[in-house]
Write a protein that binds this DNA or RNA. Sequence first.
DNA 1: CCCTTGCGTAACCGAATGGTTACGCGTATA
DNA 2: TATACGCGTAACCATTCGGTTACGCAAGGG
Lengths: 108, 108
Amino acid sequence: MEADVFKAIADPVRRDIIGLLAREKMTVKTVADHFSISRPAISRHLRVLRECGLVAIQQQGRERVCQIQPEELAPVFEWMEPYRKMWEAKLDSFEAYLEGLKKDRGEE
Amino acid sequence: MEADVFKAIADPVRRDIIGLLAREKMTVKTVADHFSISRPAISRHLRVLRECGLVAIQQQGRERVCQIQPEELAPVFEWMEPYRKMWEAKLDSFEAYLEGLKKDRGEE
DNA sequence: CCCTTGCGTAACCGAATGGTTACGCGTATA
DNA sequence: TATACGCGTAACCATTCGGTTACGCAAGGG
């Protein structure tokens, strides 16, 4: 129904599928062969991934080839970016603090 | 039960809570006041966030102050990083392609 | 032309999710 | 000390989720 990238990558199986497809495009069957769960289950995971654009599927004869569209992760990246800046600033200030300590020790 | 950052940020309410706490630390009550859902619901969202480390909570008298720990998003960032590289490479090659087109046109 | 194969989907089921109200407990306050 | 407040949690409920098996259909190969 909804195309939510955050929901899509919340599932470890779907992250694994993305990991697989990052190496090479492959058919639905081939994807399913990499997992122990049933093919319909994979089919539904792929549907979620397709609906949010993370995976594109094209028909080739009777097969369907899956391919990832990594740029669709951009929303996640953009959402995270400010927080990444926050924690980097935190680390920087911690380093500065350590640096300050060292300096203090050196000058005494 | 499980402390899964990916699951934690999959929920829009929890992302909103993180957004709130990014501006300033605040009590559970204050967080709840920003939403239309009940306080117990917020309490449980906060629990999820706390269990995966994204939010730290410290008791202060009868209040509990919430604070985000943005560095806990690192796993998500690290998981995403290769894909970000992929889509940037894609963009680069597209630019190179455009560049190539321009050059070809220019030389003919 | 049949039979196999790749695939989606429907129907079903148990577990997890996310909301609610009701309650209890500890801390501030009048 | 009585009362109000901040908070977590239990109990309950509806919905969603993720798995399964069973099926149908279209494309390829004997």
